[in-house]
Write a protein that binds this DNA or RNA. Sequence first.
DNA 1: TTTTGAGTTGTTCGA
DNA 2: GTCGAACAACTCAAA
Length: 454
Amino acid sequence: MTAVLWLRRDLRRRDHPALLAAREAAGDGDLVVAFVLDPRLWDGGGPVRRAWLAATLRALDESLDGGLTLLHGDPRSVVPALAKRVSASSVHVSRETTPAGVRRDEAVRDVLGDGVEWVETGTPYAVGPGIVTNGSGDPYKVFTPFARAWREHGWPEPAPTPRSLEVRHARNDADATAALDAALSAPDLPELPPAGEEAALRRFRAFRDDALGDYAGDRDLPAVDATSRMSPYLKLGVVHPRTLLAEVADRRGSGADTFRDELAWREFYADVLWHNPRSAWEDLRPALSGMRYDEPEDAIEAWKAGRTGYPVVDAGMRQLLAEGWMHNRVRMITASFLTKDLHVWWPVGARHFLDRLCDGDVASNNHGWQWVAGTGTDASPYFRVFNPVTQGEKFDPSGEYVRRWVPELRHLEGKAAHQPWNHEDGYAHGYPERIVDHAAERQEALDRLAATKR
DNA sequence: TTTTGAGTTGTTCGA
DNA sequence: GTCGAACAACTCAAA
């Protein structure tokens, strides 16, 4: 028997139920492990996404001793063709849960030939979307009760790691390998995290042993390297959240609890998307669908480039461009600025983030944006408009984060970096003036909200 | 069914 | 500078 394992958001060897299922199905026969580069997704994303995926695939291929089969094209034709070419009797996958992924998988399954079994094992989540429900069997719409029920539901232990893995390589598609090469040599790429499962686990264990204890407080400080940085790996399934939960299973205290909560957020948003597929790009709460928005092109460009004149906003946007990653606290501040200070509809920002973040995930990213915009689950109160100066001074009290990413402000010491307008030489090195007046735009945001409700 | 308490992450103002 | 109160109304979860 030959079994095909078609990888998508599960680019790892450890803790991989679908991999074990495929190997079991193959028995004494061959196991083919394949990744299909779908040009529609590949070309739709930005260079950072492509480079991170390419680097991750390279690392995975290496860990399989060059056994990864790389294909190119529409999975609806490529996967059945592969199954036929290697005479597979089954195609194994981890169950996909996003709207587009579910549609794609249904379509592929429908065109698999007779005699080729389609087998879904596991999901990218500790508890799969749709599983955690309240007493009435309905999904949760508020995080806190979801997280409580999620913890009580519990999750399985990690799946055993195959000690040896023999993989039959089935000829790469030259278009796919060329695309990877091109992605990795694209100009102006940010410095991406080290790719691969081993690097991810090394990083996580260092985080667990050095930073987990202070995580609850320090995770909000963008100048401090206090977060796990697991998001790029979780995005592609280089590590499974179940693995991370097991790695900290014996850890007590607020740091460990807060970290588990962050994973719960990821699972919560996947669950929300599962139950509300349209919320990926549409307002989840119809109450605010009549909100009036602006499309200020120049201001949006200034926001994207990190030239709004608000230091912490600009630092964050520049970190995004430079690293393909942004600290979570700053994601909120920059998102608030676009939606509340520039009055731009949240999908504009969500799209920009998704294309440039190497951890860009539709469920977490877009629902995070909806939360800030007030259109999502558990909408923030109308009065919660982030003040970019207050936020900067509170969470980057030393000004270090701003100075790291905004060279024009490096001559300002301490907190002064957050208010160049209060210093004679504040604009001496070309830092832009504020493009809007925050106090006025805050009031405008509140007025628009009030008008929408009437 | 009704009721009650609570809801990630905030800001401002005045004492 | 620090602190507590006020800032709407609504939806959700659970008793």
